[in-house]
Every structure is written in structure tokens, then in C-alpha cells.
């Protein structure tokens, strides 16, 4: 990481720490913020946060490793989490899993080569009456069928494409 980039990041984290209060309890909201914005919590970020909150970097790493929604390595832009608990299992999650793996070309736990999708398991999304359920980033899809998997993935791709297009236009203007 460039020195200027590091300085900018430390400054951002410092402001964040001030906003949440410089104490241990600020750890989770800070990590969630970083995860939302950068899609992962880097080693450098963990050390800056530890420094700001007067705890040890390894404690920050411990928290990051504990929560499935936080990670120390970059994941795909869309994280697809398929519920694997009993109701969704009975509702046919295996079929959906195969479809997902087939459409994305990756097994569970991996990210596509273009960095778009990460496929993961989730434990109970609370949609037991409408399984199989899956989560794409913050969005929940219920009663997913094999056909719907294709639609969901295309929807993501389109969204990203549109999003990217808009950004380019903004830059041009």
C-alpha cells in the first residue's frame, strides 16, 4: 500500500473512532463500516484500529475471524450465501447449490475469477417457511428455484454493469 494511501486510511479510521468513541465498544461498528466500504478488513486497517482503540491487533483479528460477515481477505462484489439449515435442506437446497456452482463455475467458499461473485454457506436466514432461501449481499431471496438462480445472477450482473456505466458517465461529465 502506498504511504499516501495509508495516511488517508488512518485519517479516515481516526475520524471513525472519534465518531464511535475511542473504546473497545467501538470495534464492531468500525469493522462493519470498513467491511461495507472496502469489502474486507486489511491487515493494516486492523493494526490502525487496534492502535486507536488501545487494544491489540490480534484481538481485532480474533473478532474479524469470528464473524462470517467480516473477512480479512477481499471477497467478490456479490456475496451469495445459501442457507443450509434443515428447512431449506428439506425444501431442496442441494439442487440450488448445484445450480449456483454450475452457473458461477466455482465451488462453495470461492470467488469467481472476475471478482464478481463469492459463494458461501449460511446458517439459517430466518426464512424457514419460504425455503430454500439465499442472501445476495443484503438482499434475501426466498423460494428459490433452479430457474430463479439464473435470474438472480443475471440481475446482479446487470446491476453491476449499469452501475459501472453510470460511474463512467459521471467521470466523463
Amino acid at each position: 500500500m502506498l504511504v499516501t494511501e495509508r495516511e488517508r486510511l488512518s485519517e479516515e479510521l481516526r475520524e471513525l473512532a472519534e465518531a464511535y468513541g475511542r473504546q473497545r465498544t467501538a470495534l464492531l461498528p468500525m469493522l462493519q463500516h470498513v467491511q461495507r466500504k472496502y469489502n474486507h478488513v486489511s491487515a493494516y486497517t486492523m493494526q490502525v484500529i487496534a492502535d486507536l482503540l488501545d487494544i491489540h491487533p490480534v484481538e481485532v483479528h480474533s473478532v474479524v475471524s469470528f464473524y462470517a460477515f467480516l473477512g480479512d481477505k477481499p471477497r467478490g462484489r456479490f456475496i451469495v450465501r445459501l442457507c443450509r439449515t434443515i428447512s431449506c435442506d428439506l425444501a431442496g437446497k442441494d439442487r440450488i447449490a448445484r445450480q449456483l456452482e454450475n452457473d458461477l463455475g466455482i465451488p462453495f467458499g470461492q470467488t469467481t475469477g472476475d471478482g464478481m461473485f463469492t459463494l458461501e454457506w449460511a446458517n439459517c436466514l430466518g426464512m424457514c417457511d419460504r425455503g430454500p432461501a439465499l442472501l445476495v449481499n443484503d438482499r434475501v431471496y426466498t423460494g428459490v428455484t433452479a430457474e430463479k438462480v439464473h435470474e438472480i445472477i443475471e440481475e446482479c450482473r446487470a446491476e453491476f454493469g449499469l452501475h459501472a456505466l453510470r460511474k463512467k458517465e459521471e467521470q466523463r461529465a
Binding site: 487494544i55 491489540h56 491487533p57 490480534v58 484481538e59 483479528h61 480474533s62 475471524s65 469470528f66
Partner: peptide, 15 residues
């Protein structure tokens, strides 16, 4: 390491 010596080398990672 964390509480007694306050060095912070070891911690439980994962779940």
C-alpha cells in the same frame, strides 16, 4: 499474553 503481560501475541482465531 493479553491480560497479564499486555503484549498481545496470541488470541483465539475462528469459531
Amino acid at each position: 499474553c493479553i491480560d497479564f503481560q499486555e503484549v498481545g501475541v496470541l488470541e483465539a482465531i475462528g469459531r
